[in-house]
């Protein structure tokens, strides 16, 4: 840097040395991962109240208000039921197709809405980012919290549907909680990664609907998983069956329903789910943290 100005001619210090001597820290320096996590923890109240604010402001002008949190998943399930259950009569292989379909639609919808909202978590809040100082990961995490709240309402609806279509309550229902928690962590990682991607390349937002569509068909949401084993083999089958959403959906179906065809044995599915949760949860967080100081640029 040839232009580095020398001040205070007596000491002949460069500005950089002067800053170091007086213990000033560089603005825009990336904090260590541990410091960043600590900062983020101290902003937990901001994250939760921001999430609450988002829910209130998005539903604030509708007449039904918070009731939409329950209504949206219900309508969603009804639409898919009419198309795949009534019109196309795709019931082969699964006894309780309605419960099967709804579980898939709801679990998939959770991740889908997190990704869609996550893409805009940073790029849609540039005003806030340029005005105030807070760990930026607060924004995608708040969005994940909004979707978690929506999903809890959806889960209540789902449980009513599953019961109404004749599934008994068993001990296996207890597994719902760990599966849900794993998916929450997985989704948070996904939201963080999506937020950084969306802040760098605005074009990603245009591709998300297509990516989600492919993911939907690859996750055996609308038809039995056995379709994959019937039509695919070798590495293609591996690829499809390692799909994290397929794993989460399968596990949830296994927990909620008595007689379901699965892509693999439950133990394998559990191991896969844990691996995906750790990989995406930690990976997404680290990936977002690495970009922390560039988010204000837009």
């Amino acid at each position: 840097m040839p232009q580095t100005a020398v001040i205070d001619s007596e000491t002949g210090l460069t500005l950089k040395e002067l800053a170091r001597r007086h213990g000033l820290s560089a603005a825009g320096k990336l904090p260590s991962l541990r410091d960043y996590t600590r900062q983020l923890w101290s902003y937990r109240h901001f994250i939760s109240s921001y999430a609450n604010a988002k829910v209130t402001s998005s539903l604030g002008r509708t007449r039904l208000g918070v009731f939409w949190q329950v209504l949206t998943p219900l309508i969603n399930a009804a639409v898919y039921y009419v198309i795949f259950g009534v019109v196309l009569k795709q019931k082969s292989g699964v006894e309780n197709f309605v419960a099967y379909l709804c579980t898939g639609v709801f679990i998939f919808g959770f991740t889908q809405s997190v990704v869609q909202a996550g893409i805009q978590a940073v790029s849609g809040n540039l005003g806030l980012i340029r005005a105030l100082h807070f760990p930026r990961a607060s924004l995608p995490l708040a969005i994940t919290m909004v979707e978690i709240r929506n999903m809890i309402a959806s889960m209540a609806v789902l449980i009513v549907i599953v019961l109404a279509f004749g599934e008994p309550i068993t001990l296996e229902w207890l597994l719902i909680v760990p599966i849900f928690l794993m998916q929450c962590v997985f989704n948070a990682g996904l939201a963080l990664a999506a937020a950084r991607l969306g802040s760098k390349v605005a074009d990603v937002k245009q591709l998300v609907p297509f990516a989600m569509r492919i993911w939907l068909y690859g996750s055996a949401v609308l038809y039995p998983v056995t379709r994959f084993t019937d039509h695919l083999s070798g590495w293609k089958l591996y690829l499809v069956e390692a799909n994290p959403l397929l794993v989460f959906i399968d596990l949830m179906r296994h927990a909620l329903m008595e007689d379901v065809p699965l892509a693999a044995s439950p133990v394998v599915l559990w191991l896969e789910a844990i691996a995906w949760t750790l990989l995406v949860g930690i990976g997404g967080y680290v990936y977002f943290w690495r970009g922390e100081k560039g988010y204000g640029r837009g």
Binding site: M1, L24, A27, G28, A131, K293
Partner: peptide, 20 residues
């Protein structure tokens, strides 16, 4: 905004005591 650390610098640096 750059002093506050809200906008990144492309070249050079800004040092500050505490968080502006």
């Amino acid at each position: 905004r750059a002093i506050a650390g809200l906008l990144p610098t492309d070249k050079g640096a800004i040092y500050a005591a505490g968080q502006p």
